[in-house]
Design a protein around this nucleic acid. Structure first.
Lengths: 345, 345
DNA sequence: TTGTAAGCGTTATCAT
DNA sequence: ATGATAACGCTTACAA
């Protein structure tokens, strides 16, 4: 079943059918009704390749994910992000293609890139890589392919959506300082991730505002896993100058591991060591004590990313779009606050 | 840059260029070399829409995921599965499209389905739904779209890849019986998931072989989350006849929640209650005591699914392909075994 | 408001 | 081994 047959059955021309399908206003009610009838009867749907060829729009957007899958992709953060992305794609009748490098071979990544971008498989790309030095950014610009980053980028001419990591981290650490803690550690991501950089900067800012010089061995960089958080906390506990009295952890998943390490070491939370997380995952309410955390709207980051890339696709000469979404301090037990406002488990 | 220009630059016809691109043997070495040269210089890649239109193959496979995203998708199981799927797609130069229903509105799901399948966006589909009664199976058959299930299906004419859940569960529970436990509980998924059904059946088989009739309130059905496991364990602990002395949990993620519930209730593991998980996630080694579990090759399930669907696409009249992958008992501390063979955290 | 016709960039079927 | 040429199924001026 194709346009031709359909047009024949409905007694109109191909163009009219095409207009109906694409919601063109210049169709008489009678014609539209007849065409829609035939479409419904035959459960017709236009061929996407033909559409893509003729219109130069595939209605597919790509989601580029870093290759450290088990490390990064296993974090519920990604599940929520993808959830938001898919949701908004569906709303806008766009399909989502997953782009993921599964080997360390740079040739393979190149091949993947070329097939997808240069093969015009995609109208635009959402990058969930977080690496400040990801070379794909330059390639996409060179190829004139619309893209948006989830996580800000230092260049001013790049579109992104993010939260204000610096302000959020500063606020969280300031809160810990308010509890009277003075030796506050930080567990955060690798140094080439923009989020890690910003959260560390916020941490230092809060300390400086309290007149405190950060101690070097109180900052641990690790990967965003439960296990990474576990090890990092062990390291903090073992440091020569003694354990910190509070720790700001840059993700709830790592914080979960950190809590486990504290328990295993026989430490009381928050009495011996207070903990503050980042993300606001529902899962963090299944911990004792319940995790205080910086809640960020992960799903909405994904939604907004889709909206941005779609408007970039729509208008080629669009200025870069840069948006910040709000975060919120969720004060529960692990930071030393009394009230346990956890959702019942 | 398109075939026409390329042909012109290389001094050959479109057909010859096309042959080179598609690896056709009937091209002289000289011509091939010249064409490849020009391709490299201009970093040419064929337009996928045009290819799809002419060849009726898009080289895209879909991955269909159930709509209870936060519930199911958050499980690292999916991360590993997708990892395997993407890996094999990349190897075979196939793209991966994510199909996910984000609303409960059946109309939206229908729309998604029609755009993807009837719009010939996809060559084939991998279904990671696990629901025995998923209507999409019938639709795909009716539309003649090749598909494969991750998780077996009762119908004999459906392709799938799975592990032998029944045998694996039986083995795990038999192991617990070997430790001398007699009141063994089970925490498993909803009753319409084939894996839940099979694992429960294996549990009952093992009990029967030991001459034990399963106690009804020792079986809890919940969703595959940490929180689900937590609540289920609480329920088991509170049952009138007293807590079980061991529990078989149908996923490591749920088991993690179950362990937490036991700790919060002041129970010692495995002395008061032994626990056995399912999946063999790396993450489970970050728990005290380290979780005994049934390891299944999740990534390979994904890889195999891709291979199956590709061979189904290749040969339309292919018989259904049904494959079982092996599982392995990983005995650590939580079941009562002495040796702690955990990876160091 | 509707129809005609010229692409869109490939693949595939013939000849040669 | 190579080249014409006709599909493939749709969009999109342009004409009517």
């Amino acid at each position: 079943m194709n346009l031709e047959e359909l047009a024949h059955l409905a007694g109109v021309s191909r163009s009219t059918v095409s207009r109906v399908i694409n919601g063109d206003r210049w169709v008489s009610e009678a014609a539209r009704a007849r065409v829609e009838e035939v479409i419904r009867i035959h459960d017709y749907h236009p061929n996407s390749s033909a559409r893509g060829l003729a219109s130069r729009r595939t209605r597919i957007v790509g989601l580029l994910i870093p290759n450290q899958t088990s490390t990064i992709f296993g974090d519920p953060f990604f599940a929520h992000l993808i959830q938001g992305v898919v949701e908004t794609c569906n709303e806008h009748d766009q399909s989502l293609m997953l782009l993921m490098n599964t080997t360390d071979d740079p040739g393979a990544g190149d091949h993947l890139y070329r097939r997808a971008i240069r093969g015009r498989h995609l109208d635009g790309v959402i990058i969930a890589s977080h690496l400040v030095d990801d070379p794909v950014v330059g390639q996409l610009q060179a190829d004139g392919c619309p893209f948006v980053l989830v996580g800000r980028h230092p260049h001013r001419d790049v579109s992104f959506v993010d939260v204000d990591n610096r302000a959020a981290a500063r606020e969280a650490v300031a809160h810990l300082l308010g509890h009277g803690y003075r030796h506050i550690g930080i567990i955060t991501g690798r140094a080439n991730m923009i989020g890690a950089i910003d959260r560390y900067a916020g941490y230092v800012t809060a300390l400086s505002e309290a007149g405190i010089m950060p101690e070097a061995d109180l900052a641990i960089h690790t990967d965003f896993t439960r296990r990474g958080g576990y090890r990092a906390m062990q390291q903090l506990l073992a440091r020569p100058a003694g354990p910190p009295d509070a720790v700001f952890v840059a993700s709830d998943t790592m914080a979960s591991g950190a809590l486990q390490a504290l328990r295993d070491a026989g430490k009381r939370i928050p009495d011996d060591v207070a903990v503050f997380g980042f993300d606001g995952l529902d899962e963090s309410t299944v911990s004792r004590p319940v995790l205080s955390t910086v809640a960020q709207p992960i799903g909405e980051l994904g939604q907004e990313a889709v909206r941005i890339v779609l408007s970039l696709i729509e208008r080629a000469e669009q200025e870069p779009i840069q948006r910040y979404l709000p975060t919120e301090l969720v004060l529960r037990r692990s930071c030393g606050c009394g009230a346990d406002t956890s959702v019942a488990v």
